[in-house]
Amino acid sequence: MTSKLKAIIAGTTAVAALSLAGAAAAQEYKIGITQNNVGVDSYQTTYEQAFISAAEANENVEAVVLDAGGDVARQIAQIQDLIQQNVDAIIIWPTNGQAVVPAVRQAKNAGIPVIVTNSNIAEEGFDFIASFSGPNNIQQGASSAELMCEALDGSGNIVQISGQPGYTTAIERQKGFEDRLAEACPDVTIMETQPGDWNREKSQRVMEAFLVKYDNIDGVYAGDDNMGVGALNAAKAAGREGIAFIGATNFAVGYEAMGRGEYYGSIYQSPVDDAEAALQTAIDVLDGKDVPFLNYFETPKITQENMGEFSKPVF
């Protein structure tokens, strides 16, 4: 067997594929992936590396690896290019869960199964996808709310830094957090929510503005640790102490901040698991296996108390 990975990491819609010929004893698949924005944070960078490694390790997979650079129009064009290439399956990490639905419909109509990874598309597009592989973002938000309740002992005033507007993960984590917070500790009040766009520097600026506006911030919930640590840095620079920081998607910087006692808790999520699960889900769909429509992987709570049970994140 000589078939190898052909990975094309491109920010444009032009797709060039290298070809290696070889006799196959098993079914070979050409699988395309269009990602959200590899350069925006270390999670997505590590995800891409893990996806490429997983595809390289499977001699029956030829992979076309693309990055939309956060541009929904580019991602739609990339999906259309993959359809034109007649790939066997398309994996999409949506830049915008609503805007990509028509392109996903086109893939479905072309007979190409679509697997959504990490962040789901809008519910109206569910009829056009074979499976979603990734975390349960609603549950992650709910678990973060429970951590906030613990940290504040059931009462206090908090601010929220959400992810990229229009991005399903951001929407779901915020909803899960707000709904569960209202149930579990109604005496915790969210004073304001602003987007941090998954960016540490922007989140630091958002937190700086919160600190000027509010004298009584007891806690901060951020949609991921990258943003949460940006908020922590702002508070440290301002000399504001006694604030509980809760995140999701435990980054190395969040893990380290927990170890210093500066960060209360987060949700442990591996980009390596995420990438490998997406590729395996696509292969299982193509092999005709029975795959859950919502194919979640486990994302447990991590705090200062139990962090020793978890390896430091590689991203």
Rank of each mutant, 00 (worst) to 15 (best):
N137T: 08
T12Y: 13
T46E: 11
T13Y: 12
V206N: 00
P186H: 14
F297Q: 13
Y255E: 06
L147R: 02
A103Q: 09
Q139S: 13
S203M: 10
T34F: 06
G69V: 08
E150I: 05
Y221V: 07
F245D: 05
R200G: 03
V291S: 12
G261K: 07
S133G: 11
V220H: 09
G196L: 00
K175F: 09
E309V: 09
Q85C: 05
I90E: 08
S266F: 00
T193F: 07
E183M: 15
V104S: 03
F51T: 12
L232G: 02
A234S: 15
I267W: 02
Q139Y: 10
V159H: 08
T34L: 06
W198E: 12
Q194A: 09
V38F: 06
R105H: 08
I161E: 00
I302M: 09
G22Y: 10
G163E: 04
A130Q: 15
I92D: 06
Q139C: 08
K108C: 13
G156N: 03
I9S: 14
L20R: 08
E48C: 07
S131L: 02
M307E: 11
V188R: 10
E123M: 13
Q106N: 12
I76G: 04
S311H: 03
G111S: 05
E309P: 05
T193H: 10
G163Y: 00
L181C: 11
I302V: 14
P271T: 06
L152E: 06
Y47L: 11
G259Y: 01
K289A: 06
E62H: 11
I302Y: 07
Q304F: 01
I283Y: 09
G70Y: 13
F128R: 02
Y29I: 00
T34Q: 07
L211C: 01
S42E: 03
Q44L: 15
K312R: 15
K202M: 11
A89D: 12
A55S: 04
E124W: 07
A17E: 15
Q194I: 04
E256G: 04
N295E: 11
G247R: 07
K175Q: 15
V64M: 12
G141S: 15
K213M: 09
T303W: 02
A10E: 15
E208I: 01
G22S: 11
Q80K: 05
E59P: 14
Q164T: 05
A237R: 09
P195I: 05
Q164E: 04
G219C: 07
D225P: 03
Y167S: 10
P113S: 04
T189R: 09
R180K: 15
A26W: 09
D153S: 06
R105K: 15
D153P: 00
V253G: 00
S131Q: 02
L294Y: 15
V206R: 00
D71S: 13
Q139N: 13
I115W: 02
S133P: 06
A14W: 06
P102E: 04
N60C: 08
E276F: 08
Y47G: 10
V104G: 04
A234F: 13
Y221Q: 08
V114Y: 00
I246A: 04
G219P: 06
T45E: 01
T168Q: 12
A257S: 14
N157G: 03
D290I: 10
V61P: 04
S266H: 00
F177V: 02
N37D: 11
E124C: 06
P300R: 13
A17M: 14
K301A: 05
Q75C: 05
E150M: 06
D41M: 04
A63M: 03
S119K: 01
